[in-house]
């Protein structure tokens, strides 16, 4: 592979960047995850081989398992809600909206990217807090008598997550719906199958690549994030991202934090592998991926 510079030269910058700033730190973290916290928060190497997996054993505690479980659950719910909200939206843009309006609608989907994610998440605090926009409006409309305590709550975190991840679901769904051959929908109608039947038997199977891409793009960031939980959970609700952050910064226990991070990576990798297998099988069966 080193014979022709045409083959390796274009990839060189990528390898340099990824190698220096991603793979090397990752390897370092992996090694650290087998060390232990020193008395003053430093890193100490274990003396005995049997102490190597100690961090991983410690993390099997119910406390962390529950947080892992809650994180998977919140990320799954975020993904599901994003899918349910995005599919009709993407369907509208791809198949119903006038062609002249499509670009405008897609631009609107991307508009949130113009502002920092952190600022947009803080905006939700302004909306949801006791004397925030939502409570003020509801009080004025006499729909409630007392302000709702929306912060901190799981609901607020979920809202922030769904809001933040929505474009990452809409865009891949749009891409695959746009490619959908409309005459197939007509063919289904013509064969006596109405709107819902056509949706489940033609539209959904043929846009499965987009659905799967959206799921991956939303689930992975949701399961590891800690900003939304921090801002809208007020430090009172912890997901696995917050625990890892706390281990590194608060408890100054980098080795334990690293082991939790690698467990999270393992979960994500396992899910990605299932995804890859599924897509490969589909791609072999059909010519649509």
């Amino acid at each position: 592979m080193f014979h022709s510079p045409r083959k390796w030269l274009p990839l060189l910058p990528t390898w340099l960047i990824l190698g220096t700033f991603f793979l090397a730190p990752l390897a370092l973290m992996f090694i650290i995850s087998f060390a232990r916290r020193g008395p003053h928060g430093g890193i100490e190497w274990v003396e005995h081989l049997r102490d190597l997996p100690q961090n991983y054993k410690d993390s099997a505690d119910t406390l962390y398992l529950n947080i892992f479980w809650l994180s998977v659950w919140m990320a799954s719910l975020t993904t599901l809600l994003c899918l349910l909200i995005s599919y009709p939206m993407a369907y509208y843009i791809a198949l119903i909206a006038k062609p002249s309006r499509k670009n405008l609608l897609l631009a609107l989907v991307a508009v949130p990217f113009w502002t920092s994610f952190l600022i947009r998440t803080y905006a939700w605090v302004l909306i949801l807090r006791t004397e925030g926009l939502l409570n003020t409006a509801l009080l004025h409309l006499h729909l409630i008598r007392e302000p709702l305590q929306l912060l901190p709550s799981h609901f607020a975190i979920m809202l922030g997550l769904v809001y933040g991840e929505l474009p990452f679901m809409i865009l891949p769904l749009y891409a695959s719906l746009e490619k959908l051959d409309r005459t197939l929908l007509e063919a289904s109608n013509d064969l006596g199958v109405g709107g819902w039947g056509t949706f489940w038997r033609v539209t959904v199977p043929l846009t499965m690549p987009g659905i799967l891409a959206g799921i991956v793009l939303v689930f992975i960031p949701s399961i590891g994030q800690y900003v939304v939980t921090d801002v809208l959970g007020g430090g009172k609700i912890m997901l696995i991202g917050n625990v890892i952050e706390a281990q590194f910064l608060g408890a100054r226990n980098a080795p334990f934090g690293a082991s939790l991070a690698f467990e999270l990576t393992a979960i994500v990798l396992a899910l990605l592998m299932i995804y890859a297998l599924y897509v490969r099988r589909k791609a072999r069966d059909i010519n649509i991926v």
Partner: peptide, 20 residues
């Protein structure tokens, strides 16, 4: 009457077979 309730069937120009 919508197409799925008509006793007629159409053979499409480019066949429109379901690829999946």
């Amino acid at each position: 009457t919508p197409p799925y309730r008509r006793p007629v069937n159409l053979v499409f120009q480019h066949f429109a077979l379901f690829p999946h």
